[in-house]
Amino acid sequence: MIYLQLYWAFFKIGLLGFGGGMAIIRLISDSIQQFVAMTPAEFANIVAIAQVTPGPVAVNTATYVGYVSAGVLGSAVATLGVATPAFILVSLACRFINKHRENRTLDAALRGVRPATVGMIAAAFITIGKPAFLTTTRLGSNVPALLAVLPANVDVIAILIAALTVYLIAFKKVKSFRVLIIMGILGAILGA
């Protein structure tokens, strides 16, 4: 029963994948061989697509691998599998925190974890920023004259778009969805 196997495999991945995105993708790459014959290069392609398409990278990868293994139902099962542990654990954590809000040890533990949150987000900047900025497939292919004067293995336009995003959201208080739409349109005009 491939669907049950897929669900269980992705359930385990959701349960053991600490740190989100890339950690989960490593787990997926370790466990897909039982479902579908895929070379490391083929898997790398899937991950590359998952990273440039909207949505959480881990969900995108799970959907893709599920589809390749067992069609549309396979992708539904894989995605549900990776989501289920999160669902259970987070609901339990919410309930626990609500119930013991006044507990001193829980409060102290949470105070310990909060600074680590900053570290985790800053680390994500490196994981996501590196492939977006240091790439030879740069933005701006619709304007070859511009690309000719810019360095070849750094995406200067991507860096400018990121900087503009920070400026608009943090300093100009423009709504983030609006900024995203602007940057999407800007990218479409410039081409890639």
Partner: peptide, 29 residues
């Protein structure tokens, strides 16, 4: 190139969002 450009723009903006996230959470924590 237009779709890839739009996706590239969104991806670059996502990096900007993460910088904002670091700043916002760091400021509170």
């Amino acid at each position: 190139p237009i779709i890839m450009g739009a996706l590239g723009g969104l991806r670059a903006a996502a990096v900007g969002l993460i910088i904002v996230a670091v700043w916002q959470v760091a400021r509170t924590v």
